[in-house]
Amino acid sequence: MFPTAIESERLSYEPLHESIDALDLYEYHRTGEMDEVMRPLGDKPHATPKETFDELTKSREAWDSSERASYAIRQKSDDEFVGVSELWFEWEKRKLSFGTWIREPFWGRGYSAERAGAMLYVALELLDLELVSVGHEPENEQSKRAIEKYVDTYGGQYDGIMRNALPPGDFGGPRDLLTYTISQEQWRESVTDDELNTIQVSR
């Protein structure tokens, strides 16, 4: 169902469950690097390798059932692991929601926007969905800035705040969610040929 290899200008994307070992992924949690990454998502870093292994298992099962696609993001220049991009599908609504987390050493490089462009192509062109939704918690200013930038780039819009939209996380809840959407029509009117020429996909 999903592409197994995607490339954008500086990044590549492969199925998370196939492209990284549980112990390697757990290492980022164990060193404390993930503390600042996970907190805005309402979660704590994994406490054991088994927790990381279980998450990768869930990613594989969701991929196989076409419910969710999780991609490992890497730099094309050196194959360094950057983070994770996830797509959650609502096929009956012809809609998906997506999100990402990026390792702190790679913040501020525009990778979130580049990843959004590649995933919008997959969702709205290859999979012919009608709508992509993205959101952030009210206090997450970093995500707010990143999302607003690429939503504006692709002609999308801010839709509003959904109260108690997110289940309780490790730091309490339920939690509110500010939501934005980009339609297929808005994306087609806004995306440039130059950007499309940087995206390559294989199955």
Rank of each mutant, 00 (worst) to 15 (best):
L178W: 11
G173L: 08
I161T: 15
F106M: 02
T179L: 13
Y158I: 04
E104M: 09
P40Q: 04
E7R: 12
F98M: 13
T192F: 08
P15M: 09
S85C: 15
D43H: 06
K93Y: 10
L87F: 10
R74W: 14
S112G: 14
Y158C: 05
G110T: 01
D170I: 00
T52E: 11
H136P: 10
D159G: 01
S19C: 07
L23P: 08
E114Y: 01
K76I: 06
E130Y: 05
I73P: 05
F89H: 00
V84A: 12
D159I: 00
L87A: 08
K50N: 08
H136E: 09
R188K: 13
R74M: 13
R74G: 13
I102Y: 06
G83S: 04
E33V: 11
Q184N: 08
A72Y: 04
G156C: 02
Q75W: 06
F2A: 09
A5I: 06
L126N: 10
E185V: 05
S65T: 02
A62C: 00
G156V: 01
H29M: 12
A69T: 03
M1I: 00
E67I: 00
Y26V: 12
D78P: 13
V84I: 14
Y13E: 05
K149W: 02
V201F: 01
E14G: 03
R94A: 13
S77P: 10
R115V: 13
N197V: 07
F171A: 05
E61C: 04
G155C: 05
N140A: 03
L127S: 08
S8M: 12
G172P: 11
P40H: 03
D35Y: 08
P45R: 00
V134W: 10
T198C: 15
L178G: 09
D43I: 01
S66V: 00
F2S: 09
I161C: 14
E67C: 00
T52M: 10
K144Q: 13
Y28P: 09
V191Y: 01
R115L: 14
L177N: 10
S97C: 03
N197A: 15
P138K: 07
